[in-house]
Design a protein around this nucleic acid. Structure first.
Ligand SMILES: [Mn+2]
Ligand SMILES: [Mn+2]
Ligand SMILES: [Zn+2]
Ligand SMILES: [Zn+2]
Lengths: 147, 147
DNA sequence: CCGCCAGATGCAACCGCATTGCAGGAGCGT
DNA sequence: ACGCTCCTGCAATGCGGTTGCATCTGGCGG
C-alpha cells in the first residue's frame, strides 16, 4: 500500500529544473497558487494550506518563488504582499495591471490589461511599472448583485 | 523684541479655512512638504523637522493632511507611506504617476504624467488608480552623471 | 482680556507583516 | 547507503504604523 497521496504534479520537474529542491512546502504553494483566481497574501496561503508549514518557511518559499521567476509579488495599498504565478502570456509583454477591491480587499491580476509605458523626465530610466486600480469587485459592487 | 520667528505663512489661513486648528506641527509639515521636490516618508519628515515633534503627532498630522485633501499618500513598494502636497493641476485630472528610484529609494510625483483609465472586467468599478514606475532617477542613472 | 472646551499633543503600549540567527532535518547526487 | 548542501522550524528581532489615555492649548464667546 501507500500510493503517493498528493500528486507531486509537473511542478516537481519545474522546480528541479531551476536547481532547487523539491520540498512539500514548495509544491504545496505552487499547487495552491496555480488554482487561485487571485493574488494571495502570506496569511491567506498559510490558512489555505492544511499541512501546517511554519510561517517563516512560507515566507522563504514565497521569496524563492519571486526570485526564481515562477511568480511575482504585488504590493498592496494596505502594506501586505500578495503573490501569484507568472502567466506565460504575462511574461510576454512583461507587465500587467492589478485590481484591488476596497470592500473585500481581494487583489486580482488583470493579465489582459497591459501597463502603458509612460513618458519619463530626462535622465530617468524605467525598469518596472506598477499599475493598480482600486474600486469595487463584481461581488462587492453595490448595484450589481452577482446572481 | 521677539518678532515672529518662523513665518506662519499663508498656511494658517488654509488650515483655519478647513475647520482645523493652526498648530506648529501642521504648519511645519506643510512648509516642509511645500518646498520638497519629492514625496517624503514619515521618517524623512521627522528627521527634517528640527522642532522635534512626537512620532505619533506627525502620523496624525499626515493622516489629517490626506483626509483634508491638502496632500496625498503614495504606497511605496517597500511598505512605507510617502506624502506630498496635492498640486492644483493634479487635482484637475485627479490622478498622476509616481516614480521610485531603485537605488536611492526616492519617490517623485510625476504630475504631468496622467494615469490612464483602464478597461475593467464586467462588474468591476474603478475608484482610484495607482501608477508607479520603478527605475533609476537622474542622479542614480549609471550612464548619465548629473554634472 | 478671561475662561472654557473641543480638539491636538505626548508618551507608552500595542499590532501585524516581515526578517534574521541558528540548530536540526531532509533532498538528491554520488 | 553516505554525506554535503540546502531547507525547515522555532524564537527573537525589526520596523512602520496605530491606539488609549492623560494633559495641554488654540481660538471662540463672553
Ligand atoms: Mn499579477
Ligand atoms: Mn503624487
Ligand atoms: Zn470585493
Ligand atoms: Zn536615485
Amino acid at each position: 500500500m501507500s500510493a503517493p497521496a498528493t500528486d507531486s504534479s509537473p511542478w516537481a520537474g519545474r522546480i528541479h529544473a531551476l536547481g532547487a529542491r523539491v520540498t512539500p512546502a514548495r509544491v504545496a504553494v505552487l499547487q495552491l497558487l496555480e488554482h487561485a483566481e487571485r493574488a494571495l497574501s502570506h496569511r491567506e496561503i498559510e490558512e489555505a494550506l492544511a499541512a501546517g508549514f511554519d510561517r517563516v518557511t512560507l515566507y522563504r518559499v514565497l521569496d524563492w518563488l519571486v526570485d526564481s521567476g515562477l511568480g511575482h509579488r504585488v504590493t498592496d495599498a494596505e502594506r501586505v504582499f500578495r503573490f501569484s504565478l507568472a502567466q506565460a502570456e504575462t511574461r510576454a509583454h512583461g507587465l500587467h495591471a492589478h485590481f484591488r477591491c476596497e470592500d473585500c480587499g481581494k487583489v486580482f491580476c488583470l493579465d489582459e490589461v497591459p501597463a502603458p509605458a509612460p513618458p519619463l523626465p530626462a535622465g530617468f530610466s524605467s525598469h518596472t511599472v506598477e499599475y493598480t486600480i482600486t474600486g469595487h469587485c463584481a461581488r462587492c459592487e453595490p448595484d450589481e448583485k452577482p446572481r
